[in-house]
């Protein structure tokens, strides 16, 4: 069943899916029908054994030809929450919008920026989880020069979402990517991919999956020591096999010396 309703041939990527309160599906994706990438949404309902999807709705509310990437969708209490990142402010920021069904039409609120940095660093790849009217979001954040994982919690107040101070999740150095978040009771759980910065921080692990648990201490969010999940030793950075290189370079040097000798010997004989 095709979800996007534009004419064929445009690119559609990175769908995210959530199941609503009535066991129907909400889907968000990035969509190139307007040349740049926008975030689109559709709601699917099963009627008489067939899935019917609503007219596609553009979620991002900017009209400056910015690019919007990798939506993350969650649904609770009649609200669909979609987070993504875009470059409407030149650098990439995390944005979120809340949508709901009004008079049989899906309507999305004004887009809200989540990251609270003031610089021009990039924030990318958000993922959200929802509990009641509270929203939990994690993303990759370049405000410290590298790529870290940051977290924020949003609360719906007077029909509008407000986000708290951003909190860094990872406590190891390196580059941290693609976080995922889940919330159960008072705990939030975050997993992500970490890569060491090669040749600079040899102590950190590379190309691994890390985990942390977050809890609110009454004042701030605190995240536990980062734990490596995968138990293998494969590295995302590597070094060439010295035996191979030694053999190659050795063979070449040996051949050059041998040819040099044979030329000299040949000339003397002549």
């Amino acid at each position: 069943m095709r979800v996007n309703d534009d004419t064929s041939g445009n690119w559609h990527y990175a769908p995210s899916l959530a199941v609503d309160d009535e066991k129907n599906v909400c889907i968000a994706w990035l969509d190139a029908r307007n040349s740049n990438y926008d975030i689109y949404f559709s709601h699917g309902i099963k009627e008489n054994g067939t899935w019917q999807f609503t007219k596609n709705i553009r979620v991002n509310d900017d009209f400056i030809n910015a690019s919007h990437y990798t939506p993350s969708l969650a649904f609770e209490g009649g609200n669909a929450y979609i987070a993504w990142y875009d470059n409407r402010n030149k650098d990439f920021d995390i944005y979120i919008s809340t949508g709901r069904l009004i008079n049989n039409n899906w309507e999305f609120d004004k887009n809200i920026r989540v990251n609270d940095d003031t610089g021009s660093s990039d924030q990318m790849h958000p993922h959200i989880a929802v509990r009641g009217d509270e929203l939990f979001i994690v993303w990759e954040d370049g405000r410290n020069g590298g790529t870290d994982i940051y977290f924020s919690k949003g609360v719906m107040k007077n029909g509008s979402l407000g986000f708290g101070k951003n909190t860094k999740v990872n406590d190891i150095k390196g580059k941290h990517y693609d976080p995922q978040i889940e919330v159960i009771e008072d705990n939030v759980y975050v997993v992500w991919q970490a890569e060491k910065t090669p040749y600079l921080n040899r102590g950190t692990d590379g190309g691994d999956i890390y985990f942390s648990r977050g809890k609110y201490n009454g004042k701030d969010w605190e995240f536990s020591r980062n734990i490596k999940v995968n138990d293998d030793l494969t590295d995302s950075f590597t070094e060439p096999n010295p035996v191979f290189l030694g053999l190659m370079v050795g063979s070449v040097i040996f051949s050059i010396i041998l040819v040099g000798f044979l030329r000299k010997y040949g000339k003397r004989n002549n």
């Binding site: 041939g9 690119w11 190139a32 990439f92 910065t197 090669p198 040749y199």
Partner: peptide
Amino acid sequence: PFGFGWNLFGTSGYMPAPLLNSNN
């Protein structure tokens, strides 16, 4: 170019769309 976390031309992390759509 080496995945060292550089951003020489400010395009690191940029996800460009394909130049043409699949049908074209």
